[in-house]
Design a protein around this nucleic acid. Structure first.
Lengths: 228, 228
DNA sequence: TTTTCTTGTTGATCTGCATCAAGTAGAATC
DNA sequence: GATTCTACTTGATGCAGATCAACAAGAAAA
């Protein structure tokens, strides 16, 4: 699921599973790859495909005309990207790291999924789960301080992709500081300073700018989860 | 639909219509009323019902444990409230004004809508439309200034419920300044000051604190729609 | 190798909005 | 009527994070 909320309730189910349950033609999807930095789709494009991330990380974002950007979500394996209510993408989507995706081809008949009830139900679950995650992110953007934002972001990644290493839990951070800043509604300087502060407080270690080891996860959660 | 975005692409379709198309029992829903201030549901409640607003305005919100609040959306007639991915409401919902709602009873059989494909498809459209609106709101919360936020908010209401009056377009503002502040990620003082600034700049008039007349809608849109 | 470019870090200063505080006006209650 | 309450407005001040600026370090190009 999209990495938007401190806590994730959604259990991803591969579209593949659903499709096989319903004996769809394999021809309605295929797998594809994208190198780091390459776009998957752009805002305004016809939303002909729905993507499931299989490997790597993608980023969805929107731009203001003066260049300000809001990163909407980072898509990790299992996440569904590109559902649209009106057959047009309303965000840009780019690969943050080298990425493998499953590309689901919409039926040519039109916009309705009513003739594929299991798939429709599955997409509905994805969509409502995404709404839930976005609501958590609203709290983050609207009401949290810089430290709370960064800590919340790290906790989500910790729970999603953290790997235990001694008593630490480590994960890579494939996105740039700029991506993180635009996701959290901060500047790159503030993100960098906040990472430094967490490092100096011995809550995290930063072997390099794109790798995080969480030393004191309880403290990190305390900083993040002032939410009820 | 939820009032979250400057531009709204979604054409609301009554659940009622869908249900009649499929000859569902009238017993699966009923209408109900809520007086201003009354709750429809609370965070953590079992999500037994889905609501369609028929009259009035409702508000969905989330609280942090220290009292900070984020208003997620204002629900106007035609909007669907209360879809959940895990049968539990994840926000509070209260009537802002006296409200009439249609209450849709979920089937006892469980969480899946797969046995009602038309209804499922309809809910999926609602959910993806809501995701789209929320993405616009992300830009607002994360990247816009106070003036841009308030102007964007007013433009949405202008387009949704504005009524032409001379060369002005007027609408009521049933929610409190506190509701608006918690929706936009501001304080009540900043909201109030911004309204005053727009009034002094002759862009809007405020016959009373809960009624807005937009005199210069182009200027208002220019302040709001610096988005691409 | 050196040069240039990109990305991230750190410091100094500024500013938009929050916070603190006081005042106003309409509505509800007595 | 007077009193209280609540919601809103307005002013003074403070601060978190933005902005401006310099620097560092690795990567890519020359």
């Amino acid at each position: 699921m999209y990495v938007t909320s401190p806590v994730s309730y959604f259990e991803p189910v591969s579209i593949d599973d659903v499709m096989h349950q319903h004996e769809l033609e394999p021809a309605v999807y295929h797998t594809s790859t994208a190198e780091a930095g390459q776009p998957l789709f752009c805002e305004g494009d016809d939303a002909d495909f729905v993507y499931e991330v299989l490997e790597g990380v993608v980023r969805t974002s929107k731009l203001l005309c003066d260049g300000r950007r809001q990163v909407l979500a980072f898509g990790y394996p299992g996440d569904i990207i590109g559902l649209s209510h009106d057959q047009i993408y309303h965000s840009d989507c780019d690969a943050v790291s080298d990425t493998k995706v499953r590309v689901y081809h919409k039926n040519a008949s039109g916009t309705s999924f009513a003739d594929e009830p299991q798939l429709c139900d599955q997409f509905l679950r994805h969509a409502t789960a995404e709404v839930h995650d976005m609501q958590e992110h609203f709290l983050m953007l609207g009401r949290k301080s810089a430290v709370e934002k960064v800590a919340s972001f790290l906790v989500v990644l910790l729970d999603r992709v953290g790997e235990n290493n001694d008593c630490k839990s480590c994960f890579s951070l494939p996105m740039s500081r700029s991506d993180i800043a635009d996701f959290l509604g901060l500047t790159i300087e503030t993100v960098s300073r906040t990472f430094t502060k967490l490092r100096k407080d011995k809550i995290i270690e930063l072997p390099n700018p794109h790798r995080v080891c969480v030393c004191k996860s309880a403290k990190l959660r305390a900083l993040a989860e002032r939410s009820s």
